[in-house]
């Protein structure tokens, strides 16, 4: 994905993402994985009747996922060292489903 010009890119794509996997009782582990990033087409238009604005809002998010489990280092006795996180196989412009996703704004 490094060949994209990020400031002008339009669409939704898999992009490298680095985070620190943490849970209480273990040391954090730095992980680089595939996540989703992009700019999806969204719109709002006026409507004659309440609520007067119709919205078509989609975000760039995981469409196909695989789960990866890693072992966190230096866990205290009795703490399960395994940490599971999703890896993006495919990303798409979709609604944000609160069942599987924490939907936040920038």
């Amino acid at each position: 994905t490094s060949s994209y010009n990020l400031s002008t890119f339009v669409g939704c794509t898999v992009r490298e993402f680095t985070f620190v996997a943490r849970k209480s009782g273990c040391r954090g582990l730095r992980i680089t994985t595939d996540a989703c990033w992009g700019r999806c087409e969204t719109w709002e238009r006026p409507m004659l009747r309440p609520p007067y604005i119709a919205a078509h809002h989609r975000v760039c998010t995981y469409n196909e996922t695989k789960q990866v489990t890693v072992q966190l280092p230096n866990c205290t006795a009795g703490v399960d060292p395994s940490y599971t996180y999703p890896v993006a196989v495919r990303c798409n412009c979709m609604g944000c489903s609160t069942a599987t996703t924490e939907c936040e704004t920038i």
């Binding site: 339009v10 939704c12 992009r15 993402f17 985070f19 996997a21 943490r22 849970k23 209480s24 994985t33 996540a35 989703c36 990033w37 992009g38 700019r39 999806c40 087409e41 969204t42 719109w43 709002e44 238009r45 006026p46 975000v59 760039c60 998010t61 995981y62 996180y85 999703p86 993006a88 990303c91 996703t101 924490e102 920038i106």
Partner: peptide, 15 residues
């Protein structure tokens, strides 16, 4: 109307 392409990203949730 308003139409366009705004930024969004998705990544693994914090613990």
């Amino acid at each position: 109307a308003c139409v366009g392409h705004c930024e969004s990203s998705a990544f693994p949730s914090r613990y």
